[in-house]
C-alpha cells in the first residue's frame, strides 16, 4: 500500500523518530564499549573505527572482553563471527521488502541492518506491506526504504557518538578502578534477560563449564570450544524438550 502524500524526507524522518526511543538503551552500551576498549588497550582511533567497521554492539563487547583476556586473533574472530550469524536471519526477513531496490540501496541498507534498526524497520514493513511475497513487485511509490534508512542512520549516529563519549570518558578513569569488569557484568545482565527457556539455560551452563574445562588451551581457543559445547547442549535440550512435549501429548490421549 503506497502512502499518497508521503515524501522521501517525511519517511526518513519518521524512521529517525521511531528509532529514537531505542537509543536510550543503545547509548550505555556504546559508552561501555568505548570505556572497555580503552581498558583493554585498544588505541582510541581504532576503537572508534571498529564501531563503523563492525557496527554490532554485542560482538564489539565480546571482542573487548577477549582482548582483555589476552585471546588470540583466531578465537576472537571465530567467536565474533558466530555471534553475528543472526544477521543472516534478519537479512532473510527483510529480503522481500527490499529486493526491488537498486543494488546501491541494498548495499547501503545491508550495512545498516543491526538488531535495533531491524526491529523497528520490520514492524513498519509488516504493517505497510502485509501482502509481500517473493517476486511480487513493490507498490508504486513505495518509500519504505527511506524509513529503513532513517532507522539505520539514527542508530549508526548514536552508536558512533556513544562510542566517542565512552572513549573520552574512559580516558579519565584510572586503571585501578577495574572498570573493565563492567563488561562481564553486562554479560551477566544480558544472560538473565536471555535465559528464559530451559534450552538456553543448558547452553549457558555447558558453555560456562566448558570455559573452565578448556581453560588451558592456547590463545583462549578453549572459549570457542566452550561456546560450541554450549550450542550442542542447547540444541540437545531443545530436541529433548520437544520430544517430552510430544510424549506428554500422546500420554494424555
Amino acid at each position: 500500500m503506497a502512502h499518497p502524500g508521503r515524501t522521501k524526507r517525511g519517511e526518513f524522518l519518521a524512521g529517525c523518530r521511531d528509532e529514537a526511543p531505542l537509543q536510550l538503551g543503545v547509548l550505555p552500551f556504546g559508552m561501555l564499549y568505548g570505556i572497555g576498549a580503552l581498558a583493554a588497550g585498544m588505541p582510541a582511533w581504532l576503537a572508534q573505527l571498529a564501531s563503523a567497521i563492525v557496527f554490532a554492539g554485542a560482538a564489539q563487547l565480546v571482542i573487548v572482553q577477549m582482548l582483555t583476556a589476552a585471546a588470540g586473533a583466531l578465537p576472537i574472530g571465530l567467536t565474533a563471527s558466530l555471534l553475528n550469524l543472526r544477521h543472516v536471519l534478519y537479512s532473510a526477513s527483510v529480503a522481500d521488502y527490499v529486493r526491488h531496490l537498486p543494488r546501491r540501496w541494498r548495499l547501503l541498507l545491508a550495512y545498516l541492518l543491526t538488531d535495533e534498526a531491524y526491529a523497528v524497520a520490520i514492524l513498519r514493513y509488516q504493517s505497510t506491506r502485509p501482502d509481500v511475497a517473493d517476486g511480487k513487485p513493490a507498490p508504486a511509490g513505495d518509500l519504505g526504504h527511506w524509513y529503513f534508512l532513517g532507522c539505520g542512520f539514527t542508530l549508526w549516529a548514536c552508536w558512533q557518538l556513544s562510542t566517542a563519549a565512552g572513549l573520552l570518558f574512559g580516558a579519565t578513569i584510572p586503571p585501578e578502578w577495574d572498570i573493565d569488569f563492567a563488561v562481564p557484568l553486562t554479560f551477566i545482565a544480558l544472560l538473565t534477560l536471555l535465559l528464559r527457556e530451559r534450552a538456553g539455560q543448558a547452553a549457558a551452563l555447558a558453555a560456562a563449564l566448558g570455559a573452565l574445562a578448556f581453560a588451558t588451551l592456547p590463545y583462549k581457543l578453549g572459549l570457542v570450544g566452550a561456546i560450541l559445547l554450549g550450542l550442542v547442549a542447547g540444541v540437545w535440550a531443545s530436541r529433548r524438550g520437544e520430544r517430552n512435549e510430544e510424549m506428554g501429548k500422546e500420554g494424555g490421549r
Binding site: 565480546v62 567467536t79 550469524l85 549457558a204 554450549g230
Partner: peptide, 23 residues
C-alpha cells in the same frame, strides 16, 4: 539455523563470564 542462533548469545556470554571470573 534459527535454533542455533537462539543459543549463540547465551553460550558466548556464559563462556566469557565464567572465564573472566575463574580463569
Amino acid at each position: 539455523l534459527h535454533a542455533l542462533c537462539r543459543h549463540i548469545a547465551p553460550a558466548s556470554f556464559a563462556a566469557l563470564t565464567a572465564s573472566a571470573l575463574f580463569v
